[in-house]
Design a protein around this nucleic acid. Sequence first.
DNA 1: CAATATGTAACATTAAAAGTTACATGAAAC
DNA 2: GTTTCATGTAACTTTTAATGTTACATATTG
Lengths: 144, 144
Amino acid sequence: MKRSSRLSIALHALVHLHAQPGKSLTSANLATCLMTNAVVVRRVLGELREAGIVEASKGPNGGWSLMRPATDITLRDVYVAMGERLLRTESDPGDATCAIVRSVDRVMTEFLDDAEALLAARLARVRLSDIAANAMHAGFPRLD
Amino acid sequence: MKRSSRLSIALHALVHLHAQPGKSLTSANLATCLMTNAVVVRRVLGELREAGIVEASKGPNGGWSLMRPATDITLRDVYVAMGERLLRTESDPGDATCAIVRSVDRVMTEFLDDAEALLAARLARVRLSDIAANAMHAGFPRLD
DNA sequence: CAATATGTAACATTAAAAGTTACATGAAAC
DNA sequence: GTTTCATGTAACTTTTAATGTTACATATTG
């Protein structure tokens, strides 16, 4: 299958849970909609459970449900809960005996930290309810 | 070796070129400092050559050199030249028959485009000369 | 022509994410 | 209590993108 992402899977699952309030959806249900495997869903939602975003119940009629209203869940919450790294770029230590490489590495690291914080702040402005509400329209909350 | 990135390699190489004005460095030279392979260096710098950022000359005393002063090269230039994607996250189409998945995918895509543009704008503020100048100090140009 | 460096194709290696299988555990319905 | 259903999780395989490597053609300098 194609290369998607854990964050994307998490958001898909959360919107599905939000769209069916009261009902709890099983990993197998969600896996079908997300075109992935039930274990992958459990792994991702398991991290969100530890962060108190969702809860799971076992047995018949069990499954996953939101622990908070969608207005109280930001994309940053999800992002942090999953220990996800948004930036693809990593800094490379290179040859430690090369002074320039060491310096560039430090500068790169600072930049990446900055950018990461910047994106996290933007994510904090988008709530799960925003996504759900806007899902039916073309618009999307501007980031600037 | 560890998992670094093309952007990091490119910046390392460019700072080295900037630090040795007049001289042209070979792929093998740069590969030693960056602790990578000469072919990897050629691949990365080859893209910067097509973008007019560096030039290469063959034969004895050949190698790589900057085509513009470091004050005229921004990180965004490098980023765009390499067709690099800064964001690790990708949106997942999921099951196309599921309306929610389609909608979430559209929203995710819009968000990613937004974030990508945001980061590119930030990168445009940092020049190669800034990196070189600040490499010797603890400071780094703030992004906000 | 000899030496040197890029340009590039072809292939191997690596690492992270995703997919899969298997089974233990817990909760609800009867 | 037993059956059923669903999560929790370990262990393993598969996939994919990036990186590393080898080899050789090509161009340039002297």
